[in-house]
Amino acid sequence: MKTFPIIRVVTKILIPYILLFGCYVQFHGDYGPGGGFQAGVIFASGLILYGLVFGLDAVRTVAPPRVIEKLMSLGVLIFAGTGVLTMLLGGNFLDYDYLEHHVLPGILPTGQHLGLFLVELGVGVTVTAVMTMIFYAFAGRVQAKHVQAKQEPTP
């Protein structure tokens, strides 16, 4: 893509705002429209845009497949872990009322708010990782096909 300077420059300007908007949708989801799933796909589309313009290798350096793989399961773990945590604190599974605490009131979220925050974070992490990983899987195949096509005529 080195031959399309306009696309490269515009993408470089856009990507920070896409990621910022992803964070906004994630962390403001308790107040406005949005939430984990929406934020996850917006964040992943930012990464995928970077991969489309600057190449698969570039985006793999930014978000290494090994890390993304682990994030896939980490998100589900955060979600289910919140449920187990409420059970350990004496409530039912995913009963966020038991997350009530009195550390820094008004600054740290507490109770239902904290529960929703953690759960949405889990959803966001899993969705981002899964979408990015699926893109890697597809794009990796395309890249491998091109490499094969280049190598075959030489021998």
Partner: peptide, 29 residues
């Protein structure tokens, strides 16, 4: 918390959302 949609999805129907997240995870795998 003003957002009723998030409250319903995350808290009142937390099990459903956990299931959906697991579905996304399984599909990715």
């Amino acid at each position: 918390l003003p957002n009723v949609v998030t409250a319903v999805l995350g808290s009142y129907r937390g099990y459903d959302t956990l299931g959906e997240t697991t579905v996304v995870f399984t599909a990715g795998i």
